[in-house]
């Protein structure tokens, strides 16, 4: 009876899973495929021929480098800002008891639940009101709103596990606040911060909506791609860039996944 059931259900499940995966990943594969097409005006299927020349063309386009450079800088700085602010928020919320703690916690998480377009519009009007000109820093600010949440969420869970008594034990053994942070808190939340930071970087790197509202004339890589699609010059260049974006964002997410998983195992042993 039981083995019967087991051998029957997976068939339907397998098909469903296969379809799901295909639905998720076929478009990706198509993007990759058209990075190699010889035809650069329209996406006809199948591609008339395959070539590697678009990689060279992309390499030699200064606007690609500019957009990539901007994106990397924005993502890095947003991540650093998020790491500092997110850790501090997490520390405050998990280590101390104060009036309105739950509310603060909710308020920190809210930006990621808000649609990006709301965040974007509100930031834009805030910048206008304060007469802050759009610049690199306005983009960073926009991105920091959701990057902080990602870091905070990762850190707060781990912070809760660094029980109050570990911190007291460290103080009891002669360590002041800074030494306790360095020798007890940081080693325990390190992987969570790394994971949060990587996720934040990946999120920032491919963000479009908030960026369109907070950027001036500058184009981050995703914005550049959007513009390219609207008025194509050498279409497959966009596909090559897309492949790079997939790699740049996918690898940190994968790493973050493994890091937090290992972290759980380590802290599980410490019980």
């Amino acid at each position: 009876m039981r083995s019967d059931k087991q051998s029957r259900t997976p068939m339907g499940l397998k098909i469903a899973a296969g379809l799901g995966l295909a639905f998720l990943h076929l478009p990706l594969l198509l993007i990759f495929l058209y990075a190699f097409t010889t035809e650069d005006k329209s996406y006809q299927f199948p591609p008339p021929g395959l070539t590697l020349k678009w990689f060279a063309v992309t390499w030699n386009r200064p606007d690609v480098w500019e957009a990539l450079g901007l994106s990397v800088r924005v993502a890095s700085i947003s991540t650093v800002v998020a790491l500092v602010l997110g850790t501090l928020c997490a520390a405050a919320v998990s280590q101390t008891r104060f009036f309105g703690r739950e509310t603060i916690s909710l308020l920190v998480i809210l930006p990621i639940a808000l649609p990006g377009i709301i965040t974007g519009i509100s930031l834009r009007s805030a910048f206008n009101l304060a007469e802050i000109p759009f610049s690199f820093w306005t983009i960073v600010l926009g991105h920091a709103t959701f990057c902080v949440v990602v870091v905070y969420n990762n850190a707060v869970a781990r912070f809760r596990r660094v029980s109050g008594s570990l911190i007291e034990a460290s103080m009891d053994l002669g360590a002041d606040g800074f030494q306790t942070f360095r020798h007890v808190i940081l080693p325990n939340i390190g992987t969570a911060l790394l994971a949060g930071g990587m996720l934040a970087f990946a999120l920032s790197f491919d963000e479009v909506i908030v960026t369109t509202f907070t950027a001036g004339q500058q184009a981050t890589l995703p914005i550049w791609m959007l513009e390219e699609l609207v008025r194509p010059r050498q279409r497959p260049v966009t596909n090559v860039v897309a492949m790079v974006v997939v790699l740049v964002t996918f690898l940190p997410i994968l790493a973050a996944y493994y890091l937090t998983r290992d972290g759980d195992q380590i802290s599980g042993q410490g019980k």
């Binding site: 008594s165 570990l166 007291e168 034990a169 460290s170 009891d172 360590a175 080693p187 325990n188 380590i266």
Partner: peptide, 21 residues
């Protein structure tokens, strides 16, 4: 006087050993 400047040490009820060390 903060705890880290007192010549007093504690054995905590839950031991509070550092799990990463």
């Amino acid at each position: 006087v903060p705890p880290y400047r007192r010549n007093v040490n504690t054995v905590f009820q839950d031991y509070a050993l550092f799990p990463h060390l």
